[in-house]
Amino acid sequence: MSVKERDPLTGHLTTGHEWNGITELNTRVPRAVWFFIIVTHIWAVVYWVLMPAWPVVTTYTKGLLGYDQQDKVEQRVMAANAARAVWTDQIATLPAEEIRADPALMAHVTRTAPTLFGDNCAGCHGQKADGGPGFPSLVDEAWLWGGDADTIMETLRVGINSPHPDSRFAQMLAFGESGILSRDQIRVVVDYVQSLSGLETEASQERLDEGAVIFEENCASCHGEDAKGLQDLGAPNLTDASWIYGSDDQTMFTTINAGRQGWMPAWEDRLTVADRMMLTLYIQDMAHEAKDAD
């Protein structure tokens, strides 16, 4: 059907077509539409002139502003570095005690370190730095390598058993798997080690003495005669209450049978010296707080 009709409501003519009852008015495009089309097009053209925009075979128009997102972010990063350098330079060079003595510097540490720790360390050591199976607690004051700032800084720089060329190296030998100790001997020394830290054990004194001998012969070279650990080797103290992997029979059997070699990543390429110093101060502080809370 094709009868032009006038719509009584709007007073506009239809185009004269009808599709299964649907008709169309021939209303003009409203002025506002033209207006906004023009505004957006003008804006676009201006933007093209100012910014990189149109490709031309093997190159593109660079724009009058010479803006480039990569240059821009590099400038931003450098400007931010410069702005922070006021205090990061100090943190990166001063000894830990001096930083700690300066409340202004410590304010930066308190603001910054939790995020750094959360994004990089919490995955292993936990949000509260209290560790978990396989990852040592950093707040129990039982340090593998030492809790002074320089030692922690070095641990953070090179990592432990990490692919870093200067990495600290620490290995708990696989006494069972390499055939040095029999299964029985391992069970005996497990009892002995458990007794060292005052854990309950049902073993007889005789058995513990036997364990002491095995320990003396195999373990003391790393963990020390007194089993208090040797920080030069990263060998843990076995007489305290803190455990990396655990002190139950089964875990300890696995430790001695199959050995351990925890891997702590190196942060030299990922975190700056100042970052690492802030983390050092932060975990030292957390350790103190945890101790005070006890």
Partner: peptide, 15 residues
Amino acid sequence: LPKRAERPIYSYRLS
């Protein structure tokens, strides 16, 4: 929509 509303399309040109 126009079918249900029983109204003509507002503007062919806008379409």
